[in-house]
Design a protein around this nucleic acid. Structure first.
Length: 112
DNA sequence: GACCTGACGCCCC
DNA sequence: AGGGGCGCCAGGT
């Protein structure tokens, strides 16, 4: 029997999928938006997002300083930075976003 | 079943 | 201004 996916994972993925191309968000913002109580929960959910069949732009989620803290979890250490660069996001040394606030996106900006 | 760690973030020194 | 510690929840050992 396969373990059921927690609802909050789905909530996290749902928000992450709303992040527009060329934009990024943070674990804290998403955790706060979903009232998860801890930014770690977002990271936990994204860590396992590969099990999801749908596409999840996990590379668009970084920590509050704009650093690609999850890059090591990708197939290759540079995959996350490559994906961001391909969308026009400026990344320095493959580890940090330049002009972070300029690319920052918040869930409440999305018009339903 | 207890303890440790982790894609984080805030408070305190 | 920079560094260290603690809280958060879940999963793995």
């Amino acid at each position: 029997m396969k373990k059921e996916i927690p609802q909050y994972w789905q909530d996290v993925y749902d928000v992450v999928r709303l992040i527009p191309e060329g934009k990024v968000s943070t674990y804290g913002i998403i955790a706060d938006y979903l009232s998860l109580g801890s930014a770690r929960m977002v990271g936990w959910a994204l860590n396992k997002c590969h099990v999801m069949e749908e596409y999840i732009p996990a590379h668009r989620v970084v920590n509050r300083k704009g650093e690609l803290s999850g890059r090591k979890m990708f197939s290759t250490p540079t995959a996350m930075a490559e994906a961001l660069l391909a969308e026009g996001v400026e990344v320095q040394n493959g580890e940090k976003i330049i002009h972070f606030e300029k690319y920052l996106w918040r869930p409440e900006e999305h018009l339903f």
